[in-house]
Write a protein that binds this DNA or RNA. Structure first.
Lengths: 145, 145
DNA sequence: GGAAAAATTTAGGATTTACCTAAATTTAAG
DNA sequence: CTTAAATTTAGGTAAATCCTAAATTTTTCC
């Protein structure tokens, strides 16, 4: 079991796919991703193929993409980090929603889960980000009542 | 005036050069850098040449390196971020010095100065990191008495 | 001072990531 | 079932990192 890592850019795709596919229930294709991330469709296809090689998703060419269990776990970790950071920026530092998201995006990928868990504890284990999306729990972070 | 940016890796070099040259007063050569950063001398030379092209330092081949005003300003910004984050990890989250430094290193480059300034205010404008190095001030962060 | 040893840089590559355009292929529309 | 639209493949570019081996410069020391 070699640890497979995902690049920062791939992480962006993963977070987006999770939001669209799992949270919004929509089918996600490479062209949608390209549009959202402002790259050419061919570029999105390439990244998707890499994520597929890393077993983060199942890719059916011409049809779309579906996260695997591994991909879902990875996306949730990333989104937990992102959303905890959003809460920090929004509640504590009083940034607006947009800016909270932007600042969180810059560091979520780089923050260790321990750091995130410490913020989570310090701010009372919030369970939603500023835009009401779920903040996933982490086994190492104290349970909520 | 085009904004010149430094990569995350180049930032590592810059921080290190500042600490050694300005704070410790030692002459810094490419081979020293290579040793500290665990790369081959040829690799360090290459990075130094890039930093030189970006006017962050003066490079005299075979002799050593000297930060320019621009390089010093950039290094101080980076070290301010790094050291404020160290304080956060050390004081607030109770990490030890080593780990505080490690965690800070992962995100210092990516954190906006606004975020850093907010942490700085929240923790009473500390002027030293956990290992007693100076935390440089920022014009947008409330003055200390 | 100059030759040999040591340190440093240059030259030339390899790999990875991320992006693009144009051509081919597949799907979808009528 | 043919054509239009969407999507992927093929083939490139560019920037970052890193490396080894060969050249060059500096240092050491007779």
């Amino acid at each position: 079991m070699v640890k497979v890592t995902v690049t920062e850019n791939e992480a962006r795709y993963l977070k987006l796919i999770y939001r669209k596919q799992v949270e919004d229930g929509s089918l996600v294709g490479t062209t949608d991703l390209a549009k959202w991330l402002r790259v050419r469709p061919a570029t999105a296809t390439e990244v998707i193929q890499n994520l597929s090689r890393k077993n983060m998703l199942k890719y059916r060419p011409y049809h779309g993409v579906e996260l695997t269990g591994k991909g879902i776990r990875e996306a949730r970790k990333l989104l937990r980090k992102h959303r905890i950071l959003e809460r920090l920026f929004f509640d504590f530092l009083k940034y607006d929603v947009r800016r909270s998201c932007a600042e969180a995006s810059k560091i979520d990928y780089h923050a260790s889960m321990d750091f995130i868990n410490d913020i989570c504890r310090a701010y009372g284990h919030p369970d939603q980000c500023p835009c009401q999306k779920t903040i996933f729990s982490d086994p190492l972070c104290e349970k909520r009542r």
